[in-house]
Simulated scan of single mutants.
Amino acid sequence: MIIYQNEHTTVFQSALYQTTSTVVLTKEMVLIVDPNWLPNEVDEIRSYVDSVKGDRDLYLLFTHGDFDHIIGYKAFPGAKTIGSYELSCHPKKDYKISLIQEFDRKHYIHRKYPVEFPVLDIIISKDAEELRIGDTLLTFYKSPGHTPDGLFTIIEPLGIWITGDYLSDFELPFIYHSARAYKETMNTASQILDQHNIELQIPGHGQVTIDTAEMKRRLDMSSDHLERLINAVIAKDESAIAALGDEHAFKSSFTEECHKENIRIIAQEYSI
């Protein structure tokens, strides 16, 4: 369903994990970000894109390679695909596709399009790399930590910041890659807020915001939780570690496993 819309931007949200998909319209292009999850939800996004595309070029941006974010890739044939270099050489492409296939089999889901790992037309190799499409400037910042292949994207002059699986209004850090890299990505996020005129922040899960103070709150929430968890793991403070696990919203076996993975990676990186 659509949870936010203005002249240039439409944000869809799945019933699953509050996962967002974004469509940005400019004079020259339609940019689709992470189309997902369920077939009827992907169909809704595709129908909207078909209704507004006209003679614009179609682009498809992936914030990272988690299976929920690439699941709608082949629903948009002909789109020029954009992602990080790390996504293009992802070491577990077949595994990510197997997760989609298992999800679909488990829930008796049939899709009208093939399930494949994205093949990229435009590969972002450098930090702060720019891509100009007509009057629109896209600036990409590497955002590893959650995964190694993450990208922040700034769309100017619209002031849109697409943050992928960072800076949710409720979701705390899930570290599948590196705690140290996650901290660096939070530093990058802080610099983006200082250096760019951000008018709309769109996370991969949760609600969008147009409030700069809320963007800073989200940044502080993630940074503070991560720092306290690192300190607790280093100190081997089991009560503090358990309390930090209880801070996750929608507490479940899923968040518990994510918390355990956070602890494992922190312990490994800080040689605990």
Rank of each mutant, 00 (worst) to 15 (best):
D68L: 10
I155R: 03
A79K: 12
G83M: 09
D165K: 00
E130K: 12
G159P: 03
R180Q: 13
Y95P: 07
G134F: 07
S98R: 10
Q195C: 07
D127C: 00
Y85S: 09
P203E: 06
T81M: 13
T81S: 15
G78F: 12
T209N: 10
I175Q: 05
H107G: 01
Q207R: 10
C89N: 13
E130G: 07
P157S: 01
I155T: 00
Y182R: 11
F152I: 02
E171A: 12
G83C: 08
Y95I: 11
F140Q: 01
A181C: 09
G134Y: 08
R180E: 13
T153F: 03
Q101P: 05
V208I: 15
G134C: 11
E86N: 07
K92Q: 12
L99N: 12
H69A: 13
Q201V: 09
S178W: 05
H146R: 10
E86F: 08
Q101F: 11
Y176I: 03
D169Y: 04
I97E: 11
A179V: 06
F140S: 00
V115Y: 00
E102L: 13
T81W: 08
F170E: 06
I192D: 02
L131S: 03
A79T: 09
I124N: 02
D94E: 15
T185N: 06
M186W: 04
T163K: 03
Y85N: 13
Y73V: 03
P118R: 02
T139R: 15
F174E: 11
H69E: 10
R111Q: 10
I133G: 00
K106F: 05
L137G: 01
K106Y: 06
T147W: 01
G159A: 03
F67H: 11
E102F: 14
Y73T: 10
T81E: 11
D165P: 01
L137A: 05
L193M: 15
F152D: 03
L200F: 02
L87Q: 15
E129T: 01
S168D: 01
E130P: 00
P77G: 12
P148N: 06
E130N: 05
R111H: 13
I175T: 10
I155K: 02
Y95S: 12
P148S: 04
L87T: 14
T136E: 04
E130F: 00
F103M: 06
I162A: 03
G145D: 03
T163V: 13
P114F: 00
F67K: 03
N187W: 11
S190Y: 14
Y85M: 08
K93P: 07
A189P: 03
F67L: 08
K183N: 14
L167S: 04
F103R: 04
G150W: 01
I175D: 09
D68Q: 10
A128E: 10
T153W: 00
A189L: 07
D68Y: 08
H205K: 15
L193V: 08
I97Q: 15
I202H: 07
